[in-house]
Every structure is written in structure tokens, then in C-alpha cells.
Amino acid sequence: MSLNLDFKEIATASMILFAIIDIIGNIPIIIGLKKKVGKIHSEKASIVAGCIMILFLFIGKEILNLIGIDVNSFAVAGAFILFFIALEMILGITLYKDEAPETASIVPLAFPLIAGAGTMTSLISLRAEYAVENIVVAIVINIIFVYAVLKSSGKIERILGKQGIGVIRKVFGVILLAIAVKLFTTNIQGLLN
């Protein structure tokens, strides 16, 4: 079995996943979660998110078909989740309330923040265009970057300060809202046809 590693495919898939995961834009959410739960396990969150993404890359479409959900429905559901997260960021409100979670490493950090519906939908779309091994390399590259950001979130917070984080939160909230709207409009057409 030979690997068909293609630098261009790896670079393109990495950039698409980087934009969808948007770990830089999620820094305010990560900092907020850290304040709520005290500690975020960067290694655990990164490994779980990476495993979810690789698993979904190989069996995602089959799982959705098995439970009778098409990719478009999954993407529209993901668009709603992103929409509400964006509203939280822009308006400074809390819609997601958890009964004092002990850790935020798996939920909501690894899933749905890092390996969410947008990421899953992108992986299914990428699989139709690129070699699987190139997508796996792109996932690994993104997970390494995610880990680095999670590990240094405290330093990033100190550098940016409270106002800087507030500004970034609102700006990326609007960007996330735009991604949610695009994900919704692109996939709602597929549902209606």
C-alpha cells in the first residue's frame, strides 16, 4: 500500500480545517470556559478532538446514513449550534448552561467546539475531493496547532488583556455568525431540493 501524499492537497485541506475550527477565534470561549471550570486539559481535548475527526473521516457518512440523517441535515444542525455560539460571543450572553462541569476538555471543547458539525461536514466534503491520507495529515497539523493555542491560552489572555479579548470575541463572533449563515444557506438548498 503506497501513500499518495500531496503537499498541495495537505495545504488546502489544512487551511479549510483551520478556517472551520477557528481556534484563534475561539480563544475568548476557551478563556471563558477556563474561568468557569478552572482547568482545561489541553492534551485530552486535542487528542479527543483529533480522534473524533479521524473517526468521522472514515465512518461519518455511514453513521449518518445508518441513522437516516443526510449530510445536509447534519450541516444545518451544525449551523444552528454555530449560530447560538456566535450570539453568545457577540451579545455577551450565556445560552449554554451546564450544571457546574468538572472539566470542559471533552464537552464543549473537543466536541462541538473543535470537532463540531462544521468540521464534520467539511471532512465529508474533503473526502470527496482529496486522498484520505492527505486529510489525515491536515487533521494532525490542525490538532497540533489547537494544542499549542489551548496550552498557551493563559499567555494569550495576558497579552491581549480583557478589552482585547472582548474585541476579538465580538469580531470572531460576527465571523462565526457569517460561517453559520453560509453553512445554513448552502445546505438548506440541498434539503429543499
Rank of each mutant, 00 (worst) to 15 (best):
N4D: 14
L5S: 04
S14H: 04
M15R: 00
I16N: 09
L17V: 02
D22N: 14
I24T: 09
I24A: 12
N26L: 13
I27E: 02
P28A: 06
I29K: 04
I30H: 02
I31W: 00
I31C: 09
K34W: 07
K39R: 09
I47H: 01
V48M: 06
M53W: 03
I54H: 04
L55N: 05
F56E: 11
L57Y: 05
L57E: 11
F58L: 15
G60D: 13
K61W: 05
L66D: 11
G68F: 07
I69Q: 09
D70V: 01
V71F: 10
V71L: 15
N72W: 10
S73H: 07
V76D: 13
V76H: 06
G78H: 01
A79K: 00
F80T: 07
F80A: 14
I85Q: 08
L87F: 07
E88K: 00
L91H: 07
L91S: 12
L91F: 15
T94Y: 02
E102D: 12
T103H: 07
A104S: 12
I106H: 02
F111S: 14
I114Q: 08
A117G: 15
T121G: 13
S122N: 05
L126Y: 03
L126G: 08
L126H: 03
A128Y: 08
Y130I: 03
Y130Q: 06
V132P: 07
E133Y: 04
E133P: 01
E133N: 11
E133C: 10
I135Q: 10
V137F: 12
V140Q: 04
V140D: 05
I143F: 01
I143S: 03
I143R: 00
Y147S: 09
S152K: 10
S153I: 02
S153M: 06
I156L: 11
L160R: 00
K162T: 14
G164V: 02
V174T: 08
L177C: 06
A178M: 04
I179E: 11
A180L: 06
A180G: 08
V181K: 00
V181E: 10
K182G: 05
F184A: 15
N187G: 09
N187H: 10
N187E: 12
N187K: 01
N187W: 03
Q189K: 14
N193A: 14
